[in-house]
Write a protein that binds this DNA or RNA. Structure first.
Lengths: 184, 184
DNA sequence: TTTATTCGGGAACAATCATTCCCTATTATC
DNA sequence: GATAATAGGGAATGATTGTTCCCGAATAAA
């Protein structure tokens, strides 16, 4: 069942919510129509489950990226690098469910809107935490503002997904080197 | 006719392409179904026309913002500020057609994908031009890399629209002050 | 072995979609 | 002033959508 949900995630990422018919879903999930409606109330419920699965998986991936860093600054750098890598190439073209949901559904679907909002805040808090770690261990200068820098970095990460979906080439090392100036 | 197209722009910005029925379009444009199909070949053609109208209008707005600046650095700062203002509040919730198209259509619609890609490059070139002006007039330090900085700033602007659509509050002065560190 | 019960599959359904067709005014042409 | 041409409006159409219903196989209970 979780593997079916993973396939649903993939379809929703590629095509978005409205362009994904339940025919597309059943084909991708390798389930019949009836079976999908036995497991989920409706298409909206499938999407919500896919959204949750996607965000928990992504959370793990960025946490792992952060873990490979000796201090706050390095952990933050690794997170940014991880974001660029996920926004590049075929994975980037596949898209981000959070960005997709924000753009396509946030304004018209209050339930999805609330989840997107919560997820962005979670991500922002995670980055803010890394900045605070850097302030504490001395790898980030004292005068850096935590909230403002974290919010701008969220903008960068979300923007990376948009630009990656549009197939502009992204060079991780170079972009991150520029972005790290925000911690000067 | 142009005023009808403006209304179409608004609907597409708010709901995206797939969630906008031609019933929504006719209601917004105040035209009957037949009239829409006399003016445009199909729904896709309406969207393309709306997209072009939106981008030319936005181009003008950011050009005007840039014009109110004494040197390259100030012009760039005004452009960023303008982007934040357009990503805030009700205008921000309305969304950006370029970001929306990139996320919803870029991967599945080659025609729209090409236009989105071209528009992003145009925006990037505009920003790169401002950076070069700043390098020439001395308001931006010599060691700033034009291409990398411009690409990251495009990520910031696109990310602002995503975050604004998700209704996170954006403080223009503070965010731009942080972003201007990229020109250090 | 026989009988319930659950589970997956797919045909049938109603609603909605984009699109076409035709009718009616209004304007332009002769 | 009569007629052709155009522009706009809305009903009809066929395809596609999300959803429900029912059937058959497999498993569990008796």
């Amino acid at each position: 069942m979780d593997t079916a949900l993973d396939r649903a995630v993939r379809v929703f990422r590629e095509r978005g919510y409205h362009a994904t018919s339940i025919g597309d879903l059943t084909a991708a999930m390798r389930l019949a129509t009836g079976s999908v409606y036995k497991a989920f109330r409706d298409k909206h419920a499938v999407f919500l489950a896919a959204f949750e699965r996607y965000t928990t998986l992504r959370q793990q991936q960025t946490s792992n990226a952060a873990a490979r860093g000796a201090n706050g600054r390095e952990r933050l750098r690794n997170v940014l690098l991880s974001y660029v890598e996920h926004s590049r190439g075929s994975e980037g073209r596949r898209g981000c469910l959070v960005v997709g949901s924000a753009v396509e559904l946030s304004a018209v679907d209050p339930v999805v809107g609330a989840r997107v909002n919560a997820q962005l805040k979670t991500n922002e808090n995670f980055i803010a935490g890394l900045i605070r770690e850097g302030l504490a261990d001395g790898s980030i200068p004292r005068h850096v503002d935590v909230e403002d820098t974290a919010r701008l970095m969220i903008c960068i990460t979300q923007g990376l997904r948009v630009v990656g979906k549009a197939r502009l080439p992204l060079d991780g090392e170079r972009l991150v080197d520029v972005a790290m100036k925000l911690l000067a």
